[in-house]
Each structure stands twice: as structure tokens, then as C-alpha cells.
Design a protein around this nucleic acid. Structure first.
Lengths: 211, 211
DNA sequence: AGGCAAGTGGATGTGGTCTTCCATTTGATC
DNA sequence: GATCAAATGGAAGACCACATCCACTTGCCT
């Protein structure tokens, strides 16, 4: 599917694609703090070319991760299709954490970062709505503990981002163990009391915190 | 207890103390990425004064957190004194995470950062040895799951650092809920299989990763 | 009190980032 | 092919970080 880029000269379109591809690689490897100059270098274009297409770094980041945000929101639909709600729930949590582990930039997008929030708000809300559904079904099936809340997923993403970003050099699979521990504690059987969660709006504000 | 600072003019000693105090505050609030200039400003001294006492930022960080590293290692002794090994174990994990939550800079020191590793290695090892003991006792008491390993604490610290650093603006107590979930999944009762942990040396390398 | 090494703050240097400017080149249209 | 707006790359601007220099001040010792 060729992305919507109206009326662009073919060389410009080609360079735009190169920049996007280079940025995808570099953000995935290094996270969002990777320098723009390195993106331009790997794309084989000058800085001006890159900035003409993506006037700010934020624009580039938004363009790079738009499709991943869609995939992120789609993942919840896939989970909802699982006939076993609990298995769907677990698979979704693992899937999302795996996306973070596979792409440091995406982990940043989901947690650590920016007022790109607005650009991604729609997909985030779509994912949130689906996840609420998933929670309800898993609870109804008696497998998810009753005091689990929507905000707990955000918490998981933050925690996972911490592990992922600390284990880029070594111990890269540690996140799997973290998620396994957490998922086990989300099961209904082991439900000892918990501290109260933050309110959804508090959690939302935490996500908006600027870099 | 006046810190060991040999042969320093009284005004110099006073300024040194001011810099340390300012740095303690600022690192606690903002983490280690806080600019040195702000430390100097809050201390009410010029940049040269600060850099004369602490030639590099790393030196300042080391000086600021030396006592906290000691407290960190002492906490494990306290936990070992608890007659109930499981309660001691849980209290220790919570205590350490609370230290991270109370001081963003300390959270960075324990996870995200630097070759200050060397300066803090002794205390880290002391804490590590005590924690190994704590693990053994809690397992012997049948309360800690058998497949819990030493590296899991490092994992908890990384995860907690992620939550703490994402919730400085809002939802500041979210870490408590994370820790509660994790501790419940560390209990022997709920022990479903887990992915293998990283080796200790892999985890150590992950901790050394430079900024 | 006086001499002087130690201490001081602000200006400056160095290096890194994101972003813009501009002289030149290149693709699309007639 | 000729024309010209679009596109280009590299240099330069603006900013912010850590660290250093230097002319001036200040505590200390006799």
C-alpha cells in the first residue's frame, strides 16, 4: 500500500521513503533519542532533504510509528477473537510487550514520551476500548482478578519499557520473564489485596509528560 | 557526621556542602540528567566552584549517592533480621523500590546508568550477598518460589525505574501497585513455569551499559 | 596588618543536538 | 530540448550540555 503523498516528484518520493526506512531502523535500534543526522546519513540524503519532508523530529517520529500504532490497536482485536478470554488477555499483554522489546523507539512512543500523544490518540483510544472489553470478558470468565484495572496495562508498559531499555546490550529476553511474573499475578487465583491504582486521568497525565 | 574533606578552607567547605545539598535535591527531583548549571544555581555558587570540588558530573553523582548506596546495602541486613524470612524478603523489595521512587537520581544510579559501577561496586556486592541469603531463607521457609533467582531483583529494579520515571508528574504511587503484583507472583503458591532468567553475568553487563 | 595560596564567579571553549539557508542540480512540462 | 519550480546537500545558525580559564577576591598564617 503506497502511502498517501500527493504530488511529489519521483526523486523526492524515493528519498522520503529512504528516510522513513532509515528512521524505522535507527529508532528501533536506539530509541527516539537517536540523532536526526544519523537518520539522514543512513538514508543517504542531506539534512535539508529530510527536514523538508519532516519539518521536525516529531513529524518524522509520527510518520514512522503510525503503522505500528495501528498494529498495536489491531492486536487487541486479534485477542478478542480468541475463544478463551484469558488466553486472549495474556496473549495481548505479551504481544504488546514484545512490540516494545522489538522496537526501542516504539517503547518510547508508548510510554516515555512526547506530545505526539495527539497524533496517536485515536489508535490509543481504539486499543483502550478493546482492552476494556478484553478485561471484562476475562473477568467474566473468572480468570482475571476482579481488582485488575485498565490502568494496569499502562503500568505494565512503563515497567516493561524500563526493562527493555536497560537490557539492550545484554539479557535482552529479561522482559519475557517480567511479563510472565506479572501475568501470573493477574490471574484470579492469586488475588491478594493491592494498593489502589491511579485514576485513569492521572495515568493519562503521566503518559503526556513531555520529554 | 562531617564528611572526610581534608584541609579545606572554611568557605570552600561551606560551598562544597551547599553544592552537595543542591545536587541531592535536584537529582532526587529530576534524575541524573539534570544540568550541572542548575545545581550550581541552586547552590548559589559559580560553575567553577562546583567543578573545582567535583571535576566531573560523575564525581558529583558518586559523592551524592554514596550514603544512599550504603543505606541500600544496609537495608538487606535489616531484612535479614526479620524472624519471618518471607516478610523480610517482601519488605526488602518494597524498601528498595521505595528508595527508587523517593529519588529519581537513585533510581538511575541503580539501573539506567554509568560506569560509576566501580565506585558503588562494593556496596552493590554487599547488598547482593545479603539478598542471596534472604532468597535462600525465604525459599527454605517454603514461601518464595523455587525458580526465583537473584537476577530477578535487578529485573524488578529496572521495571520499577521505568514506572517511577514515567510517573513523576502524575500517578506517583503506581510503583506500589507494580511491586505488590510482583511480590504476589514471587510467592511459592502461584508458581507456574517461567522463561529462563538471564545469567548473572549477562545481567551485570546490562547494568554496566553506558549512558 | 600583610602576603599569598586557595578559592571564586562569570566568560569562554568544546561538542553535540535540531533546524535553516543557499547556491546548485534535477525532474516535470511545453 | 528549453524552462523553471521543486528538490538537493553541505555549511551555517541557534541552543544547550559539560568543562575550563582567568582576572579578581578572600580566608589563613605569621
Amino acid at each position: 500500500m503506497p502511502e498517501k503523498t500527493p504530488n511529489l516528484r519521483v526523486d523526492a518520493e524515493r528519498n522520503r521513503a529512504r528516510v522513513l526506512a532509515a528512521a524505522r531502523e535507527i529508532f528501533a535500534e536506539q530509541g527516539l533519542q537517536a540523532p536526526m543526522s544519523e537518520v539522514a546519513r543512513r538514508a543517504g540524503v542531506g539534512a535539508a532533504t529530510m527536514f523538508r519532508r519532516f519539518p521536525t523530529k516529531e513529524d518524522l517520529v509520527t510518520a514512522v510509528f503510525a503503522s505500528k500504532m495501528t498494529a498495536y490497536a489491531d492486536a487487541v482485536d486479534e485477542a478478542l477473537n480468541d475463544p478463551d478470554p484469558w488466553r486472549g488477555f495474556c496473549a495481548y499483554v505479551e504481544k504488546v510487550c514484545e512490540m516494545q522489546a522489538a522496537d526501542r523507539g516504539f517503547a518510547d512512543v508508548l510510554t516515555v514520551t512526547f506530545p505526539m500523544a495527539k497524533a496517536f490518540e485515536a489508535e490509543r483510544n481504539r486499543a483502550g476500548a478493546g482492552f476494556a472489553d478484553l478485561i471484562a470478558r476475562a473477568k467474566a470468565a473468572g480468570r482475571l482478578r476482579a481488582d485488575f484495572v485498565h490502568q494496569d496495562l499502562v503500568m505494565v508498559l512503563m515497567a516493561n519499557a524500563g526493562v527493555v531499555s536497560a537490557t539492550t546490550e545484554a539479557a535482552q529476553d529479561t522482559w519475557r520473564r517480567l511479563v510472565a511474573y506479572l501475568v501470573q499475578s493477574f490471574a484470579a487465583e492469586a488475588a491478594a489485596p493491592l494498593p489502589d491504582p491511579a485514576t485513569p486521568s492521572q495515568m493519562y497525565r503521566a503518559l503526556l509528560r513531555l520529554a
